[in-house]
Write a protein that binds this DNA or RNA. Structure first.
Lengths: 342, 342
DNA sequence: ATGAAAGCGCTAACAA
DNA sequence: TTGTTAGCGCTTTCAT
């Protein structure tokens, strides 16, 4: 009934549990345990189907082989795709992922970090929410590897993988203007983080460079927790009150998706006189009629860089200070978005 | 540096670690520990910011407050949405989710279950892959709560939440025929599970009831691991060789999405003479021009039923055999899909 | 080349 | 009402 323990194996093989442990951990060679014993023990392990209890191991060694992943919402395709890539790479190194959605809520995020702490996860991957800075600082002070992504935290020396938000919207806006657009709308979310400000800034700077004045009536901020109904109403208003609008830029994928819904509902057509640009690619935009141009973030690359940096840190921790590795050198990666014209 | 332990608290409060433990676990009342001591200890706990080490606790109590979630692919919106709902409800009960993608690969799935076992997760939520039956049986034999969903396993007495696949495609096909469609295509995946067979069966039975003969040339099976390119080619062929096709039913959401891409590419228009029906709702289908009718699975309800059954089982385990609860009574839930006409 | 034993942090039976 | 202590399963130091 109860799963076999290292003790059972030791008994059955007439050796001590130490010997079994050494064999399990590949230290048999080093300890010069005889081939005969090794084979006997391994045979018994296989026969009984013994698997070491990772919980006990964690208590003893202090590492859980688990990585905590904190994102805004795991059901958002952007995060789900990244989660998947991260999972794959972590799995190959024997790490498991424990994920949680913060809902962009600091207190929930803090709570989740507490849970992860008491569960002793070895490392953290965090898409930070505003207000979480101190908790991240604390993790670092405790010597736990952390990588943040999606959002940058100014003044915090932490490993970080982000996309150049300014450049994305700048290019998109510039493109629209070059195509003769003069009244370009901008729809964003009311979350006050640098990323969103940068996206706005990219848009504004592009206007400026073409001597177009920023028109506040073409700009709207949708509350983060706005209901579908309210978002819809807000966007419908924007479009109806500004018939002169000849293009609109959305600063997130879900806003763009909702926006397309609104446009469909109010019957506003996309054609030479009005077009839409979205943020983050999505099947919806590819298959839409007409297809929607997007500022695309390199999802695969984000995931890859994040997990690579983390695994690197994790191996540092093991060999630790002994090798005199400077653990306070952080890596900041800024990836480029790609403007996909459709 | 090292986090405080229960011992540190005990020392600081001049009480034994037992007392602290009882207070931590809400057994203070029961043990008639004085109010004064309780308050003193709680104050110190708060001051030091002590959080019990869940790993040690797990080793001692045997439960980890963690649920293992096995799905085919966490980046598939269907699974991601379900994962999110499950996470929310589990979180409220103090459980964390550890997820993994099986890629519909038995050996990977087996491997993942092994990992979860050695990590001693308290319960499993599994979207099963063919060939995993024995492993699930084993979990049950070990007395570990399991709920499977998305796919049913015949001959296995296990908690299970599925959708009536037959009914979904039957209704959709029936609707199409009533609307005068005579040459309805069917695109499915070559995974041999009951669910897919049922979806095919629903389609076939609806044809039969209207005295339409099943036409094998209108039917195609896309290999599960087919590349985008190959899938595209296969579907393009299907459409080109069957210009008489006046409707097509896709048996999964991702096939439908790929199919829409193919149709767009080859320039086949959707109109009164040709329409598409997809499986599982998705923003793409809502926003498509024209909008795509779908057989919708009740995602929220699936997630809710799954986690409810699991939490119920989990509470059983605690009070266990002592209360003489029949733990071998399983719950099988069959939910109804909804055909959404667009 | 192998074994004995301490201890990771916690819970809970038993003592006092 | 509170304290002492065994032990969960494992790793690792020290002894032999």
């Amino acid at each position: 009934m109860k799963p076999p323990s290292i003790k059972d194996i030791a008994n059955k093989a007439n050796v001590s549990i130490t010997t079994v442990s050494f064999i399990l951990n590949g230290k048999a060679e080093n300890m010069r345990i005889s081939k005969a014993v090794i084979e006997k023990v391994n045979a018994i392990i296989k026969e009984i189907g013994f698997k070491p209890n990772q919980v006990a191991r964690s208590l003893r060694t202090g590492n859980t082989k688990t990585i905590g992943l904190l994102v805004e919402d795991i059901s958002n395709p952007f995060f789900a795709s990244i989660a998947r890539k991260i999972e794959d790479k972590a799995y190959k190194k024997g790490y498991k992922i424990s994920y949680s959605s913060t809902e962009n809520d600091v207190s929930k995020a803090k709570d989740l970090i507490e849970m992860f702490k008491s569960r002793k996860v070895d490392a953290y991957i965090i898409a930070p929410v505003p207000g979480i800075e101190d908790d991240i600082r604390q993790l670092q002070a405790d010597g736990i590897p952390v990588v943040i992504f999606d959002r940058h935290i100014p003044d915090l020396e932490v490993n970080c993988v982000v996309v150049d938000n300014y450049k994305g919207t700048f290019e998109a806006t510039d493109y629209l203007i070059e195509r003769g657009k003069k009244n370009i709308g901008f729809v964003t979310v009311n979350v006050q983080v640098a990323e969103m400000k940068d996206r706005l800034l990219g848009y504004q700077k592009a206007l400026e460079q073409h001597n177009i004045e920023f028109d506040a009536s073409l700009y709207t901020e949708v509350p983060f927790d706005s209901s579908d109904l309210n978002t819809n109403a807000q966007l419908a208003l924007l479009f109806k009150e500004n018939p002169q609008m000849d293009a609109v830029l959305f600063s997130t994928n879900y806003l763009a998706i909702k926006g397309l819904g609104t446009l469909k509902e109010i019957g506003k057509l996309m054609n030479d006189d009005f077009c839409v640009v979205a943020y983050d690619d999505h099947d919806v935009f590819k298959l839409h009629t007409p297809p929607i141009s997007v500022v695309d973030q390199p999802i695969e690359e984000i995931a890859e860089r994040v997990i690579d940096i983390l695994l690197q840190e994790l191996s540092k921790v093991n060999y630790g200070p002994a090798l005199n590795v400077k653990t306070n050198e952080v890596q900041k990666v800024i990836l480029l978005p790609k403007f996909i014209v459709r």
